[in-house]
Computed example of a mutant assay.
Amino acid sequence: MGILTVLEDDGTSTAANIVNLSVVEETVILQDLPDLPTAFAYLLGLIYALNLQYPIELRYTFETVQKIFMGLGTDLSVFLVFK
């Protein structure tokens, strides 16, 4: 699961142009998203709505964004509890 960014690099400019942003989970679920923050919000929303488990390596990052920044849910993991 993740965000797929398709870039166009013609070799003449220093920065590549973003052609397409997509959310993928073994197949493309959403495509032609306008920008990276929107793609991340859609990814987080799909994970939350479908009650999927976060990738192990990014579990605490996703939990922080979900619970602190987006205000979805109140129970925090042991490592996210601030004293």
Rank of each mutant, 00 (worst) to 15 (best):
Q31R: 10
A49P: 01
T38P: 00
E8A: 04
I47M: 13
L7S: 01
F82C: 09
T61W: 14
D32Y: 08
G71A: 00
S22L: 02
A16N: 06
D35W: 07
I68G: 01
Q31A: 11
L7H: 07
L76S: 03
V28Q: 01
V28K: 04
F69Y: 15
E57S: 13
L46E: 07
D35Y: 07
L30P: 00
A15S: 10
T64D: 06
M1R: 05
A41N: 14
R59N: 09
L30V: 12
A49L: 11
V23N: 04
F79T: 11
D9T: 10
G11H: 04
Y48M: 03
D35V: 06
P34Q: 06
T12M: 04
V23S: 03
L44R: 14
Q53H: 11
L80D: 05
T38V: 09
P34D: 11
D35A: 10
K67H: 06
P55R: 08
N20A: 02
S22Q: 13
Y42G: 01
Q31N: 14
F62P: 00
Y60L: 15
F79A: 15
L50S: 09
M70L: 15
N51R: 15
D10A: 00
E26W: 03
L58Y: 14
L43A: 12
I47F: 13
L58I: 08
E8S: 06
V6R: 06
F62G: 01
T12S: 07
L72R: 12
L80N: 13
D32S: 12
E25Q: 12
M1E: 05
M1H: 06
V65L: 15
D32R: 09
E26C: 04
V23A: 04
L7P: 00
A41C: 12
L80S: 06
P34M: 04
F62T: 02
T12C: 00
N17C: 02
L43Q: 06
Y48W: 11
F40K: 14
D10N: 13
D75R: 10
I3T: 03
V65E: 08
N17L: 06
F40C: 10
Y42A: 15
P55Y: 10
L43I: 01
E8F: 07
L76H: 11
L21G: 04
